[in-house]
């Protein structure tokens, strides 16, 4: 009798848990269809984790650097752990998370994230945090990122957050329940179309140009963690024309890099060296680079990593070469499909 009762309880509990898990999968936003930025962070866990370079940062890394070029032309195996409006503490905890799996030679961090000192938006938080695997780093990142009204429990059980989406469900939500296809190329989000940068607005005047204490604290934590793990930290500012990069911000970053003896590349000041042309190398009028622009600045970065940081060419490594063959094929397929979609002719470097 007792045994029967136990089975009844266990059976009910299993049915409840399973149905709730399915319901959660159904109701969660399907980023792969609509807002692909939300699907990026998760992709990393399916990777072979043996990268020489890991990028962390916001859209200025995942739209502006191409790991494919770094591999094809310099034999550098890299990955971008980027996400939309990635806040600096999220970058730090993503770095912590990455270091659970591998220790790259170089970490590239895009300094635009210093502009935010406080949590900004739940939507962006979720795009970064939901894809992370559960760990202490994820929990700390959630706690550091929550805006007013957000609840930690709603990250643990996203069903509680998305419970009301039942009225907006479409066929895609059912189809996408277990789909996990790639939306990036080692974290790079490819766009080939062109929208020239014209009339880029000046930055609005700010009351205070100093980066916040919280942002600097996490900048220090990133630098300290890299030093502790023997990783070289390279600071970059991607060449995006907007959001506006103020000279006062530049001064603070230069001063910081000098003080901490960190290399720093501001690609906004390297347009001549990279050959960047904002009439053809951006797809959204200067906010982000298109494939052509990304490949140009990645070449400059590749040279820098090889010459100044001494990263070795690994193209002779068998397993790695095989992996990249597949990645290259996917990269070219995506590129060609986009050229076709936008009615463009493929360009040669």
């Amino acid at each position: 009798m007792k045994k029967r009762k136990l089975w009844k309880i266990l059976g009910t509990a299993a049915a409840v848990v399973l149905s709730l898990a399915l319901l959660q999968e159904l109701l969660m936003p399907k980023y792969i269809y609509d807002i692909t930025e939300g699907a990026m962070i998760r992709e990393y866990y399916g990777e072979e984790k043996d990268h020489d370079v890991v990028f962390i940062g916001d859209c200025e890394v995942y739209e502006n650097f191409s790991p494919e070029v770094l591999w094809q032309e310099y034999g550098i195996n890299s990955y971008i752990r980027g996400s939309a409006q990635q806040l600096i503490w999220q970058s730090y905890y993503l770095l912590e998370d990455t270091l659970r799996y591998e220790t790259p030679d170089v970490v590239v961090f895009n300094v635009l994230a210093l502009q935010y000192d406080r949590p900004q938006s739940e939507a962006y938080n979720r795009m970064t945090l939901e894809g992370m695997r559960w760990s202490g780093s994820k929990a700390k990142s959630i706690l550091a990122s929550m805006t007013e009204g957000e609840s930690f429990l709603e990250y643990v059980f996203p069903l509680l957050r998305y419970h009301s989406r039942w009225s907006e469900l479409t066929v895609k939500d059912v189809q996408g329940m277990f789909r996990r296809e790639q939306v990036t190329h080692n974290g790079y989000y490819m766009r080939v179309d062109v929208r020239p940068a014209e009339n880029v607005p000046e930055g609005r005047i700010l009351a205070d140009y100093s980066f916040g204490d919280n942002a600097w604290t996490y900048m220090d934590k990133i630098a300290d963690l890299c030093r502790e793990k023997g990783i070289r930290l390279l600071l970059v500012k991607a060449p995006s024309l907007y959001p506006y990069w103020y000279p006062q911000w530049e001064e603070q970053v230069e001063e910081y890099a000098r003080r901490r003896e960190l290399p720093y590349l501001n690609f906004l000041e390297l347009t001549e060296e990279t050959g960047l042309d904002f009439s053809s190398d951006t797809y959204d009028a200067g906010l982000h680079l298109n494939l052509s622009g990304a490949e140009k600045i990645t070449r400059y970065l590749g040279e820098y990593l090889r010459e100044d940081m001494g990263l070795a060419d690994r193209r002779g490594e068998e397993g790695l070469t095989e992996q990249w063959q597949e990645k290259t094929a996917a990269y070219e397929r995506d590129r060609d499909a986009q050229y076709e979609k936008y009615g463009m002719t493929p360009q040669t470097p």
Binding site: K8, T12, V16, L23, E122, E154, R161, S164
Partner: peptide, 28 residues
């Protein structure tokens, strides 16, 4: 019988879970 009870109460639980006005996005 137990299955009927379980379905009824789980059904009500799902109604509260899915149709309840709670969480971020609703005024607590």
């Amino acid at each position: 019988p137990y299955p009927v009870r379980a379905i009824l109460w789980y059904g009500l639980f799902l109604i509260v879970l899915l149709a309840g006005a709670y969480g971020n996005g609703y005024d607590a």
